[in-house]
């Protein structure tokens, strides 16, 4: 039985990757289990400057998911390279995915140049889809032109594989994915969170201090699956499927839609062992559906 997959030369023992923003820099999860069993993981969205993020409350519960409005709180790229990555090396011995965000093309370039020099970074994930920050974040991911500009700029400063993480909050995600591919992206990661909102009935005001935030969790799985299916039909670069995955069955389904690997986000917050449990369950579920090699099912649903 073969669970290993290949993302542009980055060989993963299995397709399971905790998604950025739900796994910190790995440190919190090492107390729950040996995180070396993971395919890889995407570290917390990191920007050029340290960011304190949005005011609290930043979290609102939803049916089968949650809204977050963290706002890219992170210690900044210098501190991540100086403190977080050396610490990570002591307990994680696989290449990590660096999730980079920015408020200008120059900031994306700055961060990518920095992580390009880090041997532990196996792949760069460029986040042009954060809904929780003004001026930047998602605004780069909502038009094909700006998405292509960021892709091109980042590709010019690194030899590591570059995946662009796309926002679902757009009219035509296929056009944006195509623009990234044409601009040189090595792969696409989708989807980031959906823009959502909750209102507290007692207080008669939005639950989240910033009023709106990013909705994720099992509720969004069908939307993510549909978008992965559409993008994989139109593009010839690998896709990391992300959005609402909560079981080994979901992993198989996402891969059949066209994903080469998957990211698991919100469920890490509810069940810190979810990635471990899915990795352990995968062989059994593969056997149930007559799958010997996971690579055989990538995009197989397109044949019908």
């Amino acid at each position: 039985m073969n669970l290993s997959v290949n993302l542009c030369g980055l060989k993963l023992d299995n397709p399971i990757i905790p998604a950025s923003g739900t796994f910190g820099y790995g440190n919190e999860f090492k107390d729950f289990y040996d995180i070396n069993i993971l395919g890889s993981f995407a570290f917390k969205g990191t920007t050029k400057e340290p960011r304190s993020g949005n005011p609290t409350p930043r979290i609102a519960e939803c049916t089968n998911g949650l809204i977050n409005s963290v706002g890219l709180q992170n210690p900044g790229i210098e501190s991540v390279i100086k403190h977080e990555l050396p610490l990570l090396r002591t307990f994680f011995h696989k290449p990590v995915i660096a999730n980079i965000s920015g408020f200008s093309i120059d900031e994306f370039i700055y961060c990518c140049e920095k992580v390009d020099k880090e041997p532990q970074v196996g792949l760069i994930e460029v986040n042009i889809s954060c809904p929780n920050v003004k001026y930047g974040g998602m605004s780069f991911g909502t038009t094909a032109d700006s998405a292509a500009q960021v892709t091109q700029a980042v590709k010019s400063v690194t030899t590591k594989p570059v995946f662009i993480k796309l926002s679902p909050n757009v009219t035509d995600i296929v056009a944006i994915a195509k623009a990234c591919e044409n601009a040189g992206a090595d792969g696409i990661c989708l989807i980031n969170t959906l823009f959502g909102m909750r209102i507290d009935l007692n207080r008669r005001q939005p639950v989240i201090a910033n009023k709106m935030g990013g909705f994720s969790g099992p509720a969004i799985f069908p939307i993510a699956l549909r978008m992965v299916y559409q993008v994989s039909q139109a593009c010839n670069i690998p896709i990391i499927g992300c959005g609402g995955i909560s079981s080994a069955h979901d992993v198989i389904e996402m891969m059949m839609a066209g994903a080469t690997a998957v990211q698991i986000g919100a469920m890490n917050l509810k069940n810190p062992y979810i990635c471990k449990e899915i990795i352990e369950q995968l062989p059994e579920v593969m056997e149930k559906f007559g799958i010997e090699n996971l690579n055989d099912i990538i995009g197989i649903a397109h044949q019908h």
Binding site: K44, S52, G53, P57, R58, I59, N68, Q73, L269
Partner: peptide, 27 residues
Amino acid sequence: EERMGCGFGACMGCSIETKSGMKRVCK
């Protein structure tokens, strides 16, 4: 007390500003 996502330091949902920087209420 703060609204929390995970409760163990992963999501930064409950961070507050202190005199020595941002800190997670849960961690």
